[in-house]
Simulated scan of single mutants.
Amino acid sequence: MIRWVAAIFIGLFVFYPLLPFLEKLGVGRMPGDIRFRLRAMIFCLPFGSTVLWSALAFLVARFLK
């Protein structure tokens, strides 16, 4: 369980600075993605984008195998 928490924390730590670049690819602007502002910061929870990118990675991996 602690490994999953650590993996999620590291993933957020790595990909959160890349969010402006990833928005150009559609991450954070799909149905199912949640954006909210808390004081001066904007938080994005890309649930819909995560499902789409995971499915795309699965199909690519399956095609290459």
Rank of each mutant, 00 (worst) to 15 (best):
M1K: 14
I2P: 05
R3S: 11
R3V: 11
A6I: 11
I8H: 08
F9K: 10
F9S: 13
I10V: 14
G11D: 15
G11N: 15
L12T: 14
L12S: 13
L12A: 10
P17L: 10
P17K: 08
L18M: 11
L19E: 11
P20S: 06
L22M: 04
E23N: 08
E23G: 04
K24A: 14
V27Y: 11
V27A: 02
G28K: 05
G28I: 10
G28D: 13
G28W: 06
G32E: 01
G32T: 05
D33V: 08
I34D: 02
R35S: 13
R35E: 07
F36Y: 05
F36A: 00
R37P: 03
M41G: 01
I42D: 07
I42H: 01
I42C: 01
F43H: 03
F43A: 00
C44G: 04
L45M: 07
L45A: 09
P46D: 00
F47G: 06
G48M: 03
S49D: 00
S49Q: 01
S49Y: 03
T50Y: 05
T50E: 06
V51Y: 13
V51Q: 07
L52Q: 09
W53M: 10
W53H: 04
W53R: 02
L56F: 13
L56C: 12
A57F: 12
L59H: 06
A61C: 09
A61G: 08
R62D: 01
R62E: 01
F63T: 05
F63Q: 01
F63H: 04
L64N: 08
L64H: 02
L64F: 05
K65A: 10
K65N: 13
K65C: 12
